[in-house]
């Protein structure tokens, strides 16, 4: 399991809901092109729209197949927003940014 941690920066003048920290889990299966694309896309989107208030956990199911069962993962890659609740899921290599933002319920930063 690779965990990329980004220390949240001191909060600026933002809206109440935008202070929440996002915990995002990305389930991949090995170093496939799709997985790598997904990781890259996720990091880019987070940097752009959730700067300073997100945490990404990349879980390789080849190493931990049992987690696929516990978390009901079928499609690879699957992104799970664990926090803030409610939990939501997005599948795909995250190349469709609009869908990712909609799925994560994040307002686009202009």
């Amino acid at each position: 399991m690779t965990i990329d941690k980004y220390e949240p920066k001191p909060p600026g003048p933002v809206l109440e809901e935008e202070t929440e920290t996002f915990l995002l889990k990305l389930y991949v299966a090995g170093q496939t092109p799709k997985s790598l694309t997904a990781i890259t896309n996720l990091r880019r989107i987070c940097e752009e729209h959730l700067k300073g208030r997100y945490e990404i956990e990349v879980i390789d199911l080849i190493e931990e197949p049992a987690l696929a069962r516990t978390n009901q993962i079928l499609a690879i890659p699957t992104l799970v927003r664990s926090l803030p609740t409610p939990i939501s899921r997005i599948i795909g290599d995250l190349s469709d940014e609009d869908q990712v933002l909609m799925g994560l319920n994040i307002t686009r930063v202009k």
């Binding site: 499609a75 190349s95 909609m102």
Partner: peptide
């Protein structure tokens, strides 16, 4: 109920079957 954002496959299914 799942948002789809880009290409995917069902490798997760195969991993789970293999594991089982």
């Amino acid at each position: 109920a799942i948002a789809i954002a880009g290409a995917y496959d069902l490798e997760g299914l195969f991993l789970r079957l293999q594991f089982a």
